[in-house]
Amino acid sequence: MNQVMIETGVVESTPAALLADLQELRDNAAYRFDRLLDVTAVDRGETLELVYRLHSLQTNCDLVVKASVDSAKPEIASVSGLWEAALFGEREVQDMFGVVFIGHPDPRPLLAPEDGFGFFPLRKNYKLPGRSGQAGR
C-alpha cells in the first residue's frame, strides 16, 4: 500500500510556462501526477492566482501549482488537453473570475446563466448587495 504522506508542496509557475510544466509533472516518470483534482483561483488584487491541485494515485502525493495572471487581462492556456477534469474546473473559474482559458474546447458558462452573470462574483471588486454585502469586507 502506498502510504507516502507529505505535506502538500507548492510550485510557482508562470502563465507562459504552465502548460509545459504541468505536462512534465504528468508525464515524467519521476512525478506521475495522473489526476487534476481541482482548479480554482484567488483574487490577489493586481493579479489573479490560479491554483491547480494535482494528485498522483501511484505515489499518493499531492502538489499545488500556482500561476498568477494580470487581473486586467487574465489569460492563460487551458490544461484540459492534459486532464479532462479541467473542462469543468476551468469553466467555473471563468464564470467566477473572468479568466480566459485559451484553447478550452467548450468555453460556455457552466454555473452562470447562458449569457454570463454580467460581473465576476468571486472577484474582490464585486460587493454583495444587501445585508450580506454590509457584513462583507
Binding site: 467566477m96 457552466l110 454555473l111 450580506s132 469586507r137
Partner: peptide
C-alpha cells in the same frame, strides 16, 4: 448545471 448556484464561496467571505 448552475440552477442551484447560491454563491456559497462568496457568502463565506462575508
Amino acid at each position: 448545471m448552475g440552477y442551484l448556484h447560491r454563491g456559497l464561496e462568496k457568502l463565506a467571505e462575508a
